[in-house]
């Protein structure tokens, strides 16, 4: 996720990153995404925020909706989405390293 791409996502940048992280290990539908994110980050998303981010990610082609199961579409990360996610992940890794150095944690 380049700085320009992040800027396009606006206030949904962090939400989008967590959604991509959630989808990194397989397709999930809305409720499972919320529960998964809550489990690994402790952040509880509300449905309005989740769908605001999902429609932006879908619009950018970073995730895609699979065939509906009953009334729910599971979402899957696309190759473009994986690339954007890796980019953002590397940026965060750099931030963590800089933070550790400055706090002299290593």
């Amino acid at each position: 996720m380049s700085p320009k791409q992040s800027a396009e996502l606006g206030r949904f940048t962090d939400v989008a990153f967590l959604i991509l992280l959630s989808l990194a290990n397989g397709p999930k539908h809305g409720y499972v995404i919320i529960e998964d994110i809550k489990a690994f980050s402790g952040v509880q998303f509300e449905p309005g925020t989740l769908y605001g981010a999902l429609l932006r990610l879908e619009n950018k082609g970073w995730i895609e909706a699979l065939e509906a199961q009953e009334r729910r579409h599971p979402y899957r990360i696309t190759p473009t989405g994986q690339e954007a996610f890796s980019h953002q992940f590397n940026t965060l890794e750099q931030l963590v390293n800089v933070g550790k150095q400055r706090l002299a944690l290593n």
Binding site: P47, G48, Y51, G52, R72
Partner: peptide
Amino acid sequence: YLAEMEELLQEHPLTNWTLIDLFLG
């Protein structure tokens, strides 16, 4: 999105913040 959002709301714990979030959404 309506169908899947309705399904999600069946399972999601609804608080006042959920309603505000839906309105903002």
